[in-house]
Each structure stands twice: as structure tokens, then as C-alpha cells.
Simulated scan of single mutants.
Amino acid sequence: MGAAVTNQFETGIKSSWLNDRLLFNFTYFHILTSNLSNTEYEPGTSNPTGYVFKAGDLKRTE
């Protein structure tokens, strides 16, 4: 199983109006983490079995 890989993109705009009495901020980010793995535990316990399994990908956008 390979290592997890993260790709990230972020951009933003800031603006001020009326002598800094009105401020505007817009931020967009996109984060994609692929090839996540998770530890397997014995059922009903917090004891790890020593095995890991592929947990999938995680996408965060805001």
C-alpha cells in the first residue's frame, strides 16, 4: 500500500471600501487527499490487529 498523497489549491480576494469601514474577504480552497489507509482493530476494542486497509480518498472544498 502506497503513501497518501495530498494536492491543494487555494485562492482569495480581499477588498476594503469606505475608508476601511467595509471589508470584504473571499477565500476558496480545494484539498484532495488520495490513497488514505486506516488501521484495523479487533471488534469492540481499541487493540490494533496489525493490519491496515485502504480507506479511500478525502475531498475538501470550501
Rank of each mutant, 00 (worst) to 15 (best):
23 L>M: 11
4 A>E: 01
14 K>N: 14
11 T>C: 09
14 K>M: 11
45 T>M: 07
47 N>H: 07
9 F>G: 10
8 Q>R: 11
13 I>L: 15
14 K>G: 14
2 G>A: 10
48 P>C: 04
39 T>P: 03
43 P>M: 09
32 L>T: 13
48 P>K: 06
56 G>S: 05
29 F>T: 06
21 R>C: 05
34 S>P: 01
47 N>S: 12
61 T>P: 00
51 Y>W: 05
29 F>P: 00
22 L>F: 13
15 S>N: 12
12 G>A: 06
14 K>I: 10
31 I>E: 14
47 N>W: 00
52 V>S: 13
23 L>Q: 15
21 R>V: 07
57 D>L: 01
7 N>Q: 12
45 T>K: 04
10 E>D: 11
38 N>H: 05
8 Q>A: 12
10 E>K: 06
7 N>K: 13
15 S>K: 07
59 K>S: 14
28 Y>F: 11
42 E>F: 09
46 S>W: 05
28 Y>T: 07
16 S>C: 03
45 T>P: 10
38 N>L: 05
13 I>M: 14
48 P>D: 06
54 K>M: 02
30 H>L: 06
47 N>V: 12
57 D>G: 03
59 K>R: 10
18 L>Y: 08
25 N>P: 03
59 K>N: 14
58 L>G: 00
16 S>Y: 06
61 T>E: 15
37 S>C: 01
47 N>F: 04
60 R>H: 08
37 S>Y: 03
18 L>C: 10
58 L>H: 06
60 R>N: 15
2 G>F: 02
10 E>G: 07
61 T>M: 08
61 T>N: 12
8 Q>N: 13
61 T>G: 02
17 W>F: 14
49 T>D: 10
37 S>Q: 13
11 T>K: 11
36 L>I: 02
38 N>E: 15
47 N>Y: 03
9 F>I: 08
1 M>H: 05
55 A>F: 02
61 T>F: 01
22 L>V: 14
17 W>R: 07
60 R>W: 01
39 T>C: 01
18 L>R: 10
5 V>Q: 08
